[in-house]
Design a binder for these strands. Sequence first.
DNA 1: GATAATAGTTCAATAATCCCGAACTATTAA
DNA 2: TTAATAGTTCGGGATTATTGAACTATTATC
Lengths: 103, 103
Amino acid sequence: MPRFTHPRLEDVPLDLALHALADPNRLAMVARLAATERLSCAHAAPCESIPKSTLSNHLKLLRAAGLIETTQAGREMINTLRRAEFDQRFPGLLDAVLANRPA
Amino acid sequence: MPRFTHPRLEDVPLDLALHALADPNRLAMVARLAATERLSCAHAAPCESIPKSTLSNHLKLLRAAGLIETTQAGREMINTLRRAEFDQRFPGLLDAVLANRPA
DNA sequence: GATAATAGTTCAATAATCCCGAACTATTAA
DNA sequence: TTAATAGTTCGGGATTATTGAACTATTATC
């Protein structure tokens, strides 16, 4: 099973971070993680209708953007927001984005 | 000659705004406009090497995102940042993005 | 005025990305 | 062992991005 590689935040360019956030589904997942701390991939999904492979791809993108960390726990993958690190790298950015997210 | 249509900011979804900003060239243009107030398309370009058609397309995207307004002045198109409107629609967002932009 | 130059748009074709079903892997449950 | 679960990876079709070439409108020059 894959052991994921997580980038150092200093290696994440702003563009990549913005791109990761510039999608309703991904942003919804980030918002959930911001509120919930730990979520399996399936539980992080914004809705049931989104296919597994698409979801997996979204989470991969969020990982590459330094937004989430994924660790294996049994047969689940547990995702957490790398909030402190992300906030240190891009001060105020995630707050501003989340604050402007539609309800 | 085209008379551009500019969206009402309330009709601009967050995703579109973030997507518009999630590109180094477009973000550089926004930063220039934030500093310079009025720029023709060519002068808004972040570098010489970027082709005209690409530049035109970038500016179209920025318009669609409610970030810039383009008006014709002679044979130039003058672009200005719709900062007040954008800030009202997405409070703190543009500030946060610009503040985190690489130098 | 005609001609050329300028500033940018639009079009069309190629390149790069995204999405998602199908097949696969690893772990737990029966 | 067999089945179920949780997710990844792969491949191809659909979408989007990039850019050269042709075009349009405006100003400058002769």
